[in-house]
């Protein structure tokens, strides 16, 4: 599958089974430098397994994976500082304030404390959290927490960011605002991003390319999204419909998203 720049993430014929369950079946795709690719699929399609494979949390049964030139499961430590993840839930450490959470990755990368604090504050500012830097997690709203989570991922200045359903727990207005901010930041800093989602609107609004997966993480459809597509409501609606048709589900959540 073609990618924008030189591929930073590349999967070739990757297969992963859990006992007799075939989670990923000979999946191949690549993500070019600076590209944002969405993996869209229903629950159980294998999206999270793909993400775990590229993050190196699990190893494939067959096939090869390359992330920034490394095998993520075998060269786990070599990707230190080069990748970052933003999860479905904020996963903030409750004993740390917003800024302390944002600087966590930097401290793990042994960035001096003052420098880490300066960079964390700058990122909190970019995700529009000025004034909430010293609040504890329980004092932040769901949207604010997800923004801190995003700042934590971006603060380490990774070349690759993985988003795991990062906007799906938020209400539609907050999710939309956060998607817009992420898109702006990713473009400004040239981040390569692979994100999994089950929400069609997430994919259309952020991704340059959406891979629609069916059972076994088989790619059933590839949609290229451009600024022109996003600007044209009719084109967006048509793309929405094509994706929904491939997914073919009556999932109330997704239908509700589609209706918006």
């Amino acid at each position: 599958m073609a990618a924008a720049g030189a591929p930073l993430i590349e999967l070739r014929e990757v297969t992963k089974r859990f006992a007799s369950f075939l989670a990923v079946d000979k999946l191949s795709f690549s993500v070019g430098e600076g590209e944002i690719v969405a993996l869209l699929g229903r629950t159980g399609a294998g999206k999270s397994t793909v993400l775990n494979l590229v993050m190196g949390s699990i190893a494939p049964d067959s096939g090869s994976i390359s992330v920034a030139g490394c095998d993520p499961s075998r060269q786990f430590k070599q990707l230190r500082g080069r990748i970052a993840v933003s999860f479905q839930t904020d996963r903030l450490l409750p004993w740390r304030t917003a800024v302390e959470n944002a600087e966590l990755g930097l401290l793990i990368l042994n960035v001096p404390k003052d420098e880490a604090r300066r960079r964390a504050l700058a990122w909190l500012d970019r995700v529009k959290l000025r004034g909430a830097e010293h609040k504890y997690v329980h004092e932040l709203s769901g949207g604010m927490r997800q923004r801190v989570s995003l700042a934590r991922a971006l603060a380490v200045d990774p070349s690759i960011i993985f988003l795991d359903e990062s906007f799906s727990q938020l209400d539609h207005a907050t999710a939309r605002a956060l998607r817009t901010d992420f898109k702006r930041i990713a473009a400004e800093f040239g981040k390569t991003c692979l994100f999994v989602t089950h929400r069609i609107e997430d994919a259309i609004e952020i991704a340059d390319r959406a891979l629609i997966l069916t059972q076994g993480a088989r790619i059933a459809l590839v949609e290229h999204v451009t600024a022109a597509t996003r600007a044209d409501p009719a084109a967006t609606a048509a793309m929405h419909e094509r994706i929904a048709q491939v997914l073919g589900h009556e999932d109330a959540d997704t239908l509700a998203d589609a209706a918006e």
Binding site: S57, I83, F87, L93, L104, L107, I108, V156
Partner: peptide
């Protein structure tokens, strides 16, 4: 969840202890 997020930054064992385990057991 918290173990995963700390490990996503590829920490040393000491860093896991410092940033995650010790504050959690206080």
């Amino acid at each position: 969840d918290l173990v995963d997020v700390v490990e996503s930054f590829r920490p040393s064992r000491w860093q896991v202890l410092r940033f995650l385990v010790i504050p959690h057991v206080v």
